[in-house]
Structures are given as structure tokens and as C-alpha cells.
């Protein structure tokens, strides 16, 4: 047996008190002003920010806004600034932090209220702009055997398909602060994903049209804030670098 499992068994022996500071603001309430509210609660073993925030809503302030759906680190709903760093609140254990915690909404996205931001809207715009779907003229005959694919390739595509559109990379990106239209690591990763997929018949010229500029792959300064904060640990750095090389090639050919 170990510390935590023992902890689970114990009945609240010497539980830690934690303080959670939350940046509050509701743009829909006339005359509301940003403020920081502090909530003090008793830490429980295995407590995540999902548990803590719901505890606050249930026992302290029923108006507190935040978004959780899967509460299992799968759906990408709950990203926020946790002690200043973008991350998924549902899979952050309070025990891994100092007893005073600061929470703020993810910057750059439309604020709905308190910790709730509208990442979904932003991602929808991105997907529409980059046309993140399989482009093909081929009709599929669903009665026949499926097209074959090399097992390794399928796994490689899946590795990039794992992005959960949480927006952490966007919030952690220096370029976006200056360039509103920048597609972010999430966008470049999506292009890398479709580029890899033989079912999508677009070629590099097509991708160049989409990301061959300063709002795309040439806007990225490879400062790598994104990879550090990606909760899915996607290989953003190497994929962006590779994509940039490919797009440079297209660009040079165009000049010829």
C-alpha cells in the first residue's frame, strides 16, 4: 500500500486547507468588473480541480461558471490558466500544487464568463478555414472491402489525430498575441495530419494556399510554447518544422 491509497482509506486525517483564487468576470452582466474571488476549502485525497470547482459551486457560489464535460482529460473542454499556465483542469490534482492556487480563463478566446471560454467557436472557424476533412472525388462503395492502408501509417495518422482542440497551444503561443489570424499549432498539426493521409487528394500546392503565409506556417517563430503545454503531448515541434520545410519548397518552386 502507498501514500495515496492509504490516504483514500483515512478519514480526513490532517487534511490540507487550500485557497483557490479565481479571476471572475461576466461580460453579459452590465457593469460587471473583473475581480478575484478567493475560496478556501479542505483538500480531499484524489481531489482534482474538477472536484474542487464543483465543490465551490455547490457550497460557496452557485454562479461560478466553468466547463467540464468528460472530466477525464478526453474532450478538451476544461482548459484554463492554472497558476498562469494553460492546462486541463479536470486532470490536475490539487495535491500536485502549492496550497494557494490561481485560476484564470484561457486568454485569446471569447469569454463567456469566469473560467468559461468559447474555444469551440474558434476551433469551428479554424476547421472551416483549413477545410479539415478528406478531399476526394472517389465515391466509396460501402459493400466492398475497404481500401487498404499500411498499419504503421494508420498509427502515424492517429498520433496526429489525437488533438482534442483544447486550445492550450493557442493560449501558450507568442505569435497569436500579435497576429490574430494565425492558425496556431493546432491548425498546423491538422494540416500535417491530412498531408499524411493518402485518402485526402490535396497536394502541397493546395496546402500552400492554406498555410503558406504569415498566418500559417511562416508566422510560427518556433518558440515552442505550444508543445510544452499540449496535454496530449503531440509532437508539434517536429511536425511544424517539417511542414515549414515542405512549404518553403513549394514557395521556391512558385517563384521559378
Amino acid at each position: 500500500m502507498n501514500a495515496l491509497t492509504k490516504g483514500l482509506m483515512m478519514k480526513d486525517k490532517a487534511a490540507r486547507k487550500i485557497k483557490i483564487n479565481i479571476l471572475r468576470f461576466d461580460p453579459n452582466i452590465p457593469n460587471d468588473r473583473p475581480r478575484i474571488d478567493m475560496f478556501e476549502l479542505e483538500e480531499a485525497p484524489g481531489m482534482t480541480l474538477f472536484i474542487a470547482l464543483n465543490d465551490i459551486r455547490e457550497h460557496h457560489d452557485a454562479s461560478l461558471k466553468f466547463d467540464f464535460v468528460c472530466r477525464a482529460g478526453i474532450c478538451g473542454s476544461c482548459s484554463m490558466l492554472i497558476n498562469g499556465r494553460p492546462g486541463l483542469a479536470c486532470r490536475t490534482l490539487t495535491s500536485t500544487m502549492e496550497p494557494e492556487i490561481m485560476l484564470a480563463p484561457l486568454p485569446l478566446f471569447e469569454l463567456i464568463g469566469d473560467l468559461s471560454v468559447y474555444t469551440g467557436n474558434w476551433m469551428r472557424g479554424l476547421n472551416e478555414r483549413l477545410e479539415t476533412w478528406i478531399h476526394t472525388q472517389e465515391e466509396v462503395d460501402v459493400e466492398r472491402l475497404e481500401e487498404r492502408m499500411e498499419p504503421e501509417l494508420a498509427e502515424e495518422i492517429y498520433e496526429l489525430d489525437r488533438c482534442i482542440e483544447c486550445g492550450c497551444c493557442v493560449a501558450g503561443c507568442g505569435t497569436i498575441q500579435m497576429r490574430e489570424e494565425f492558425v496556431g499549432a493546432v491548425g498546423l498539426n491538422k494540416i500535417a495530419r491530412y498531408r499524411l493521409d493518402p485518402r485526402d487528394k490535396r497536394d502541397d500546392d493546395d496546402y500552400y494556399e492554406l498555410v503558406g503565409d504569415e498566418d500559417g506556417v511562416f508566422g510560427c517563430m518556433t518558440l515552442l510554447g505550444c508543445e510544452d503545454v499540449c496535454p496530449k503531448e503531440l509532437p508539434l515541434q517536429s511536425k511544424i518544422a517539417y511542414l515549414r520545410r515542405k512549404m518553403v519548397e513549394v514557395g521556391l518552386n512558385k517563384k521559378d
Binding site: V140, E146, R148, E150, A154, E155, Y158, D161, D197, R199
Partner: peptide, 9 residues
Amino acid sequence: AAWGVPWNR
């Protein structure tokens, strides 16, 4: 599969 799901092979 045709719509892009990378099923394991």
C-alpha cells in the same frame, strides 16, 4: 474509413 478514421490495420 473513407471519411478519414485511421482504423488500426
